[in-house]
Write a protein that binds this DNA or RNA. Structure first.
Lengths: 341, 341
DNA sequence: CTGAAAGCGCTTACAG
DNA sequence: CTGAAAGCGCTTACAG
């Protein structure tokens, strides 16, 4: 079943014995056209359920009114908040959104960018796959159409980037632990070369340094993907140590929740013996008990802002200077760490 | 910054002193074209980074290779599994996916369908907004292009529908509770006229009936949206009764988790005193302790199958008979109910 | 105030 | 084996 019954300008024109040009102008409320004609045309258009073929329109104007979005993994709560923000803002501005998943695969990510161009999107919003090492495909895309990096970004790509200040957010999270009396703070981070993980680690280090706490390599743990599973595994590792930590900062909520589950299993009091702080403010962070202290990253906002800057670049006639836009985060203190009074 | 540096057939043609037609045919490996020409063309195309403009291609063929998807709320774990399945299958078949959110608003949903048509999608996958009462906009869309309902469906729309058997899934969930010795089973359902909720309620009733358990109106509770909040509220209501239930079947995981939290607060033993069963197998169902017994609905599968049937309809020259496709669910027994040995 | 014509990038029946 | 021409649905400079 192909598309059918779709009214075109041609039909309206022949029905009314007018030219296609006139019908087009009438529908677009062009000043040249007489009121009478306009009325005739619009009323018939309504009757025939005419909707302009944006496809044809865009084809002529070299514009699709479609924004392409590439994310590593859609089935991630935080990703869906990003998409929500993107879609809402895009809609406000009259754009549709094509979504693709790179499934955290660099090669796939390149292909996605390629097809986005083929599909004629007007601009691309990209959140990098975890494994992105080579960026030439991205640079090539950047030559063709506006592209903005959001959330998972990289300094290797000279384009506008919308993100949170991971370093600062992590700094405050760890600072919070220190202020509640914790002195031996473990971190669970990513072993791979992810920008976000690196920055969070840097924030951790800075917080320790600025409070004159020595870093201890033995409680700086990494895993390739920071899942609940690995959170559990690494926490078990921490608990097997002589000199246990009195707090754990996990750079994802999943790992933090894994940590909490393991601590509970070992009947360790949270936060008295060991406090836990996560990152993301996922849905699950209020399901786990004790509820998780975590960094809230406003996904909606990031998505929204990314769309705004992208459209700005799309509308600009000149190449704009790349900008770095930081969206504010917020530490939400819950029961897995002490409150400061 | 508009699109630029995009190579077209025209450029390749003039560079090679060939006609556009020949270049087009060479690139499409048409048998008429000599090997020599083909080689010349493809190698230059590669050098110039030529990618076909699918937009123009589709425009000519009245085909966009885009599937439109409308969902009530993207920031829902289950929804994102649906989308994952849809995107994966669509990609395999060479389609892109445009996603829109109706934010559970009937009017918005109508508008989304409208713009989907304007954007020239080849087919639409629709999961209904909770409040969908009038379906004329949908019927109108159905006149124009293939449309399939998935997940949140309605019998009022005469089209192919892909879903789980809510009635049966609920039946087995309640049956499971009965088999573990529970006799007074409360249900937390939706008050609004949602197809899914109705069916799950029906399964609940059938399970009781087939086990000769009388229904008791006082433990059949409804709320407009079945959130964790409302799960808590309604569970408190149950606990205030003289004759408390010995199990709660909540038609969403959120409500079930709210129930568990409330029961724990009141130090009620789960599942000994009151067992809980949810619906969806959300991420959170394994975060909460005790882990939640719940119905697993394979979102990926539903999305995948929906795409397959949609493409089938898109490719068919005749109007196909509407089908109803049931995707199997699976009760996952965890710690919030007894295991049967 | 209205129309004929060109053109967006591509494919394909028709000629040669 | 290759090319000229038409056409997909629309807009818009150019005529009248």
């Amino acid at each position: 079943m192909t598309k059918k019954n779709i009214t075109t300008l041609k039909e309206i024109a022949s029905e009314l014995n007018l030219s296609i040009s006139t019908v087009s102008r009438a529908l677009n409320d062009h000043p040249d056209i007489s009121l009478k004609t306009k009325e005739k045309v619009t009323s018939l258009a309504k009757n025939l359920n005419y909707v302009p073929n944006l496809f044809a329109k865009g084809f002529r104007a070299h514009k699709s009114n479609i924004i392409g979005v590439v994310v590593p993994d859609i089935a991630h709560y935080f990703t869906s908040t990003l998409l929500k923000g993107i879609m809402r803002e895009a809609e406000l501005q009259g754009y549709k959104v094509i979504v693709s998943e790179s499934v955290n695969n660099e090669k796939k990510q390149g292909e996605m960018l390629q097809t986005m161009i083929q599909f004629g999107v007007d601009g691309i919003l990209l959140s990098l796959a975890r494994t992105t090492l080579k960026v030439d495909e991205i640079l090539k895309t950047l030559n063709h159409i506006p592209l903005i990096l959001f959330d998972k970004v990289s300094l290797k790509v000279p384009c506008t980037q919308v993100m949170i200040d991971d370093e600062e957010a992590a700094f405050y999270a760890v600072e919070h632990l220190i202020q509640t009396g914790k002195k031996r703070i473990a971190i669970i981070k990513e072993s791979e070369d992810s920008y976000n993980s690196q920055m969070r680690y840097r924030g951790y280090l800075r917080a320790l340094r600025s409070n004159n706490i020595e870093t201890d390599e033995s409680i700086i743990l990494s895993s390739e993907n920071i899942s609940m599973q690995n959170g559990k595994r690494l926490t078990n590792q921490l608990l097997s140590m002589q000199n246990k930590p009195d707090a754990i900062f996990a750079i994802t909520d999943s790992a933090a929740i894994g940590a909490i589950k393991t601590l509970k299993k070992h009947k360790i009091k949270i936060p008295q013996e060991i406090a836990v702080v996560g990152f993301s403010n996922s849905r699950s962070s209020i399901i786990i008990e004790p509820k998780l202290t975590t960094v809230d990253q406003p996904g909606n906002k990031i998505g929204e802002v990314a769309v705004q800057y992208l459209i700005q670049e799309m509308n600009s006639t000149t190449q704009l200077e790349p900008k770095t836009i930081i969206v504010k985060t917020n530490l939400i203190v819950r029961d897995s760490s002490f409150k400061i009074i």
